[in-house]
Every structure is written in C-alpha cells, then in structure tokens.
Amino acid sequence: MEIIFKNKWYTGLEFDLELSNQYTDNHLIELSFHYNTKLRVDSVTRMLSLICQLHKNGQTVSLNFQSTRSPLLNYLHTIEFFKFLPKNGILYSERIAPQLNSLSKGSKKRKSYCAIEPIVCGQEHTEDLDALVTPFHEYFSTNVNEVRKSYIYRVKTILSELINNIHEHSESKLTGYAATQMYNRSLGVITVCDSGIGLLSTIKASIVQNYPQHQDLSDEQILNLMFEKGISRHHDTFRGQGLTSSAKNALVLNASVDLRLKESHIHLEQRKVRDTFKTWNVLNRSSSKIHPLLGTHFTFQFDLQNISL
C-alpha cells in the first residue's frame, strides 16, 4: 500500500490528513515523497512516531525518495531522522539506501533548526534543552536585553514542561521526540511527542474519582481546564501545573497550539478577554476519517512578528 506525498508543504495536521485519505491496512506501508515534498518539523516527528508504531505492530515500512538529491532526504538526514528508525523492518529504494551514509550532516546546534532530541521514558533526562532552544536564541539574540532573555527562558520552560510530562505520564517503551525550527524568522515551531497512552486517557481515568464535578465535560472542556487551571491524575495541584505553565508562557509568546491525540485534532488559539488578559479557545478540528496515532503530539506555533521586543 503506497501513500504519496506530493510537491507541497505539509504541517503536522496536513501530514495526518494526507495519510488518513490514502491509508489502508496492509503489512507493507510505502511512504513515497515527490522531489519537492516539504515537511515541517512537526510532521517529521509525527511520521517518526507513526513508523515506530507500525513497526511495533509487525508492519514493514518502505521509504521512497525520487532522488538522492531530494532536499527532503538531505533535510531528514541533517536532523538525524534516520538515526531513530528501527534497525530492521524499514526498506529503502535501491538507489537511496547506499547513499544514506554519505549524505551531509551538520552540527547538533544550527541557526534555524536543531537535531531531533529523543525522550526515553523511564530513564534519566538526557535531552539537550540548550540545543533545542538554539533557533529561538538566534532569533532573539540581536541587541540582547532582559526582555529577550525572558523570552528565551519561556521557550525553554515550555520545552522542559512538555518533556517532563512525557517522562511522568507516557507509559510507553517507544521513544518520544522533541524538535524546534525557525521559518523565515517569522514563525517558530516547537514539537514534542510520544507514543504513550495519551493525554486525555491519562486524566479521564482519574476524573471520576478525583474530580467528579468535571466528569461530564467534553474533551475540549477538559483540555481547556488542564491548560488554564491545571488538573492532575494524582489529584495533586502542584503536579498538574506543567501544562498550565506551558500555556501561560505560550500566551506571552503569542503562540497557538495544535494537539494530535489518538483519533482527534485539537487546536487552541488565543482569545483576548480584556485588554490585559488573554485565554484560550479550544477547537476540535477532527475529520471523520483520521488514522489512529498513539500518544500525544504537541505543536506550539509562535508568531514572532507580533511579539513586542
């Protein structure tokens, strides 16, 4: 079964829609990319999670690039995408496989993007937050002042809280991933994902016992509560503040949030309540046909042109 990605730009959401429109269950899944296919970094981590989940289910994945000169192929190699693929059960087109080791790979820290950082649940934190924040540091580094320093701190806090949330709640043996990238010095993207039991599954299991007043809320209302007030499956207010902290920092940085759950897409956009106060609108953007994907996949999108420095 072949899934074709055309000569266009794919965000994480658009990658999901393309996948869902073409996917049929089969032992062999071939992902084919046209020469000018462009994947935003959140679609890359989503694809990586998908491949690892399919492999765990006993399916074989084939990756087909039209040319060794494909910009996408070189980009994936540069951010170390192939490093995290399963060692077996992955096929490559004959003209591509011999070239993988000869493709260029830059340093871990770059100006506009960084290498993918693995998040291994059940082990000590080894994620390189300094490398992940580098694209934002480069953007905010001109004429550094205290405001810019505070923005870098906020970006690092968002990354730290999301990664810590995976360590605490994922319950998956599959690796999670984090990555960042800057696009045209106007859009910053953070993506953090795992292949675990999922954010809503984690909290819903404890709502009846610990938060009976919320048991009739919709998924969107539960997420809004988690982002604005903080709730924890352990009924511990302090431990439930990770997402709330990320959300507050995202509001300051003029961000929107896309959240891919097992069978749904949730979008959070900012809503101004008063001149000095902003909160979230939570929108369900799920299509009737969406391919299941385990875990929680966060994408924070920062409109840097409208941040006051």
Rank of each mutant, 00 (worst) to 15 (best):
G106L: 09
L223E: 12
T60K: 15
S49N: 15
K105P: 00
V147T: 14
S93M: 01
F5Y: 14
K248W: 06
K56F: 09
E94Y: 00
G122R: 14
S49Y: 02
I51V: 13
N36V: 00
E124Q: 12
E30A: 11
L225Y: 06
G122Y: 11
I190P: 04
R260C: 05
F81P: 05
G89N: 11
L304E: 13
L187D: 10
L72P: 10
L187S: 04
L39V: 00
K272D: 07
D42A: 09
D236S: 09
S245Q: 14
L85Q: 05
N57A: 15
S264V: 11
A255Y: 04
I290F: 01
D16C: 02
L13A: 10
L54P: 07
V252I: 14
Q270T: 12
F277R: 15
W280T: 03
S186D: 06
L17R: 09
N281L: 11
Q209E: 15
T202R: 07
I29Y: 01
E228L: 06
I79K: 02
S245H: 07
V41R: 02
M226Y: 05
S93Y: 00
S141M: 05
H235Y: 12
H125E: 11
G295M: 04
F82H: 06
R185K: 13
Q270G: 13
L129C: 05
E228A: 12
I207V: 15
P98T: 02
E220K: 13
G12P: 11
Q305S: 12
S112F: 09
R260N: 06
